[in-house]
């Protein structure tokens, strides 16, 4: 998941989708994203080694933007937020993901019943 994408490719990985969805709610710093994901589900344990390269990559693709700010405990932290393009991308990717999950479910459901 931490691997860089093909340059120019418009499709994104799961971690990217998770990050963008987090940021669609509000602007956050890296630790906040990791903590939020973890609190959402124990299944998400995001390593720093994947999180920060992903954040920087998303920024270098112009989907998110960042600026220094002050964290809740008064420390200097880098906050990320979606750019207009990133916002568009989230909605595209989310619906893509939903279709994908539905399709997969339709295939595996019969196995469970």
């Amino acid at each position: 998941m931490g691997r860089p994408q093909q340059p120019g490719s418009d499709s994104i990985g799961t971690l990217d989708l998770l990050i963008l969805s987090c940021l669609a709610r509000e602007q956050m710093h890296g630790f906040g994203i990791a903590e939020y994901l973890h609190s959402a589900s124990d299944a998400f344990h995001v390593e720093e080694g994947s999180l920060y390269p992903a954040l920087h990559r998303l920024e270098s693709q112009g989907w998110i933007d960042s600026a220094w700010g002050v964290s809740e405990n008064n420390r200097r932290a880098r906050f990320y937020k979606l750019t207009p393009r990133g916002r568009k991308q989230v909605s595209v990717e989310v619906s893509h993901w939903r279709r994908m999950v539905e399709a997969v479910n339709r295939v595996i459901d019969p196995l469970e019943s």
């Binding site: 340059p7 080694g49 920060y52 390269p53 920087h56 990559r57």
Partner: peptide, 15 residues
């Protein structure tokens, strides 16, 4: 150090 390197690499790769 490695983490920093990997993070900074995201930029190099794209641009």
């Amino acid at each position: 150090t490695l983490l920093t390197e990997q993070t900074v690499d995201s930029w190099r790769y794209t641009f």
